[in-house]
């Protein structure tokens, strides 16, 4: 039962990754591309980790998985913010290439 649930969660997570990748390639500007990408990182990886938690052998592995998710969340949010900030500055002409 838990294996089926895990498989379902992982597949839904992968769909988010595919949607994020397509968005990165197809969306018109940097902000909407970032939007698509962070969904894959946050929700897609989140669902993947929850699915893998159900399959984890022991608590230690489960904690490691959660830590991976947390670290990716923090770093992807920060890098998306930095990229958007730089793009915005360039738009306003505050940042000269």
């Amino acid at each position: 039962m838990s294996e089926l649930l895990a498989a379902a969660l992982i597949i839904i997570g992968l769909i988010f990754f595919i949607a994020g990748s397509i968005g990165l390639l197809r969306l018109p500007d940097i902000y909407s591309r970032l939007h698509a990408l962070t969904k894959a990182d946050n929700v897609g990886l989140g669902l993947l980790v929850i699915g893998l938690l159900l399959l984890a052998d022991d608590l230690f592995i489960a904690l490691k998985l959660l830590l991976v998710w947390l670290l990716v969340l923090a770093s992807s949010a920060t890098s998306a913010h930095l990229i958007a900030q730089r793009a915005r500055r360039r738009e306003r002409g505050l940042w000269k290439p």
Binding site: L71, A74, S75, T78, H81, L82, Q85
Partner: peptide
């Protein structure tokens, strides 16, 4: 750097 990056590095360094 701004709050975001310096905050992240404060948080990540011990980890």
């Amino acid at each position: 750097s701004g709050t975001m990056l310096s905050g992240l590095s404060r948080w990540l360094t011990p980890i």
